[in-house]
């Protein structure tokens, strides 16, 4: 791969915008919902849901024939619910612990999904690689819609709808989510029943995961869910700011990742995640709250006899 030649490539702006927007809207929704998953120490569950929705999506796809359909959401939702039920069934009715129950549940469902794709691959236009790798690139093949004089592939609209509505829902339910995540007993006393909140969160996760599938592929969805929140957690002390920074992370990693992908010729999904990982590393080093460099600097200041000021005021 001749890097010199790569930098000479003029990146088609249209593709940059399309792919960037697709990834951004997806990442936005995931970042908001995923931040709460991180706060609740439920990253593993997020990973499980992201794998478990595959059979639902595949079945829905086999029925409607296109990825651009709300039926995929329903399929995903049902699949996610099934996963949750299986986990409960295994964990509560036998001596198997929760982490193993989650593992058994999501690997079975994922295997089922991959098998379905494999069996039907010849009959329908669904490539197993698309599922694993994401298929933002295929956006080009879809019919266009026009907005404000500009052209966009139609799926972009659904990405936008999912991303924005997920963000709005999180904003509306913010207080409930905050209290339930911080202090479930207090939440219960306010009538925000933990079991219900959990279910809603699982539902939201399944909802945003469907778009994420198409953007970055099944295996990297977890990145879109937790990298923004994890990165923001290292940079801020209050939840509203964390949610905002997570959104910023979504934007930067999407744009940066798409640019990387188009210039270097690597898979878009992987590039977005790597960009996100880069941002995470920056936060790890320089984050105002938890950054390594910042902490070392603080310690040096304290060592010099100055009043140690908490970085969090």
């Amino acid at each position: 791969m001749d890097l010199l030649a790569a930098t000479d490539i003029i990146i088609p702006t249209k593709l940059l915008v399309w792919f960037g927007l697709a990834c951004f809207f997806t990442a936005l929704g995931c970042s908001q919902v995923g931040t709460f998953l991180v706060m609740r120490k439920m990253s593993l569950v997020g990973d499980a849901i992201s794998h478990s929705v595959l059979p639902g999506i595949v079945l829905a796809f086999l029925v409607v024939g296109t990825l651009d359909s709300p039926w995929l959401l329903i399929g995903a939702g049902l699949s996610g619910v099934l996963a949750t039920l299986l986990i409960e069934l295994i964990h509560y009715r036998s001596r198997i612990k929760q982490d193993a129950a989650i593992g058994i549940s999501f690997t079975s469902l994922f295997a089922l999904g991959v098998l379905l794709i494999g069996l039907k691959a010849g009959k329908v236009d669904l490539d197993p690689d698309c599922v694993i790798f994401g298929q933002v690139e295929y956006l080009q093949g879809y019919p266009r819609v026009e907005w404000w004089g500009l052209e966009f592939p139609r799926p972009l609209v659904s990405f936008a709808v999912v991303g924005v509505s997920a963000t709005v829902v999180v904003a509306v339910l913010y207080r409930i989510l905050l209290v339930s995540s911080f202090d479930p007993s207090l939440a219960a006393s306010y009538g925000y029943f933990p079991a219900v909140v959990q279910l809603v969160l699982m539902g939201l996760t399944s909802f945003v995961v469907v778009s994420a599938f198409q953007a970055v592929g099944a295996i990297l969805v977890i990145a879109l869910l937790i990298l923004p929140g994890a990165t923001a957690y290292l940079c801020a002390n209050r939840l509203p700011m964390i949610l905002l920074l997570a959104g910023v992370h979504a934007l930067l990693s999407s744009v940066g990742g798409v640019w990387l992908a188009l210039s270097l010729g690597i898979n878009t999904g992987a590039a977005v995640v790597l960009a996100g990982g880069g941002l995470f590393t920056l936060a790890w080093l320089f984050g105002p709250v938890d950054g390594v460099v910042v902490r070392l600097w603080m310690r040096r200041r304290a060592g010099e006899g100055r009043e140690p000021v908490s970085a969090c005021e």
């Binding site: 209290v179 995540s181 911080f182 202090d183 207090l186 006393s189 002390n237 700011m241």
Partner: peptide
């Protein structure tokens, strides 16, 4: 958890 002292006190009013 990313909440401040004031945030926690305010939570008391949410009920």
């Amino acid at each position: 958890f990313p909440v401040t002292v004031m945030d926690v006190a305010l939570m008391g009013t949410y009920g």
